[in-house]
């Protein structure tokens, strides 16, 4: 005989989706981590590549172009798998002994370990950032290219260096102008975080599948999943819309 209390801990089939709210919330937190870190990393790298491509001269612009083409020409999932697998393979081959078995966690309300960061999560963040950078770079470059050359000549005429012109004239205007196009990337990326499932990250899709395995409520769970993403992405779009209108240059 198996007691009902044990059943609750192992496989509480008698409960609905609602009873997994803590697990789903924890998994969504991981999804948010993947998203924000991926977006910010993609922004920093993307800005660097956009500047390199637009203003970097022959060598740097070719490097940036090559990066962007390779990333846009290969599947995101391949990139994430590679980022995850390369250090693992290095360890396996005995080339180095990279630390991959650490993790950060907190103890949830039911005394369980909730992992917030480990190698699979970090690898997914890096993969998403590396991928997003290529797309963000292209959106930003479009914004930079739209600044008239006259303003650059004016900047030169008062003695600004090339870098000062980029920093004080191009970036403030180009980044503003790239917000609408960039919003696409900001709205796509949350959906792409689910690729982390392939390196074993317990993010929201992975947890949803676990919940379905325990409750068999597949349609309900997937609908809830869709609604979660829809609400989140709608909120992001709203924030970006407000940002865009607040940063508008008066009169333009």
């Amino acid at each position: 005989m198996v007691g009902s209390g044990d059943m609750h801990n192992l496989m509480p089939l008698q409960y609905g989706i609602v009873s997994y709210i803590d697990e789903l919330a924890q998994a969504f937190l991981v999804t948010l981590e993947l998203y924000f870190v991926g977006l910010v990393l993609g922004f920093i790298m993307g800005l660097t590549f956009a500047i390199m491509r637009q203003f970097g001269g022959r060598v740097l612009s070719r490097i940036a172009t090559g990066y962007i083409e390779v990333i846009r020409g290969t599947p995101l999932i391949t990139q994430v798998l590679l980022v995850y697998a390369i250090p693992v393979a290095i360890n396996a081959a005995g080339i180095a002994d990279l630390p991959l078995n650490w993790y950060f966690y907190y103890i949830d309300s039911q005394n369980r370990i909730a992992v917030t960061l480990n190698w699979p999560i970090l690898a997914s963040m890096l993969g998403l950032g590396i991928n997003s950078a290529a797309y963000q770079a292209e959106y930003m470059r479009g914004g930079f290219a739209s600044i008239t050359s006259g303003q650059l000549r004016a900047a030169s005429s008062i003695g600004m260096t090339r870098w000062q012109s980029i920093r004080y004239i191009i970036l403030p205007q180009g980044l503003r102008r790239s917000i609408p196009a960039w919003s696409n990337e900001a709205a796509y990326l949350p959906k792409y975080t689910v690729v982390a499932i392939w390196v074993g990250v317990m993010e929201i899709l992975n947890m949803s599948k676990t919940v379905i395995a325990r409750t068999f409520l597949s349609v309900e769970m997937y609908l809830i999943l869709a609604i979660i993403f829809f609400v989140f992405i709608t909120a992001i779009n709203k924030v970006l819309e407000i940002t865009h209108s607040r940063t508008k240059i008066p009169g333009v």
Binding site: G150, Q151, S156, S157, Q164, Y168
Partner: peptide, 30 residues
Amino acid sequence: RARIGMVFQQFNLFSHLKALDNVTIGPQRV
């Protein structure tokens, strides 16, 4: 170049800066 001023046919003001900051940016940054 900082010692040679230039005024352009198309004005070429920095469109994200107020009139005042179009004028201060050179003395400040250069």
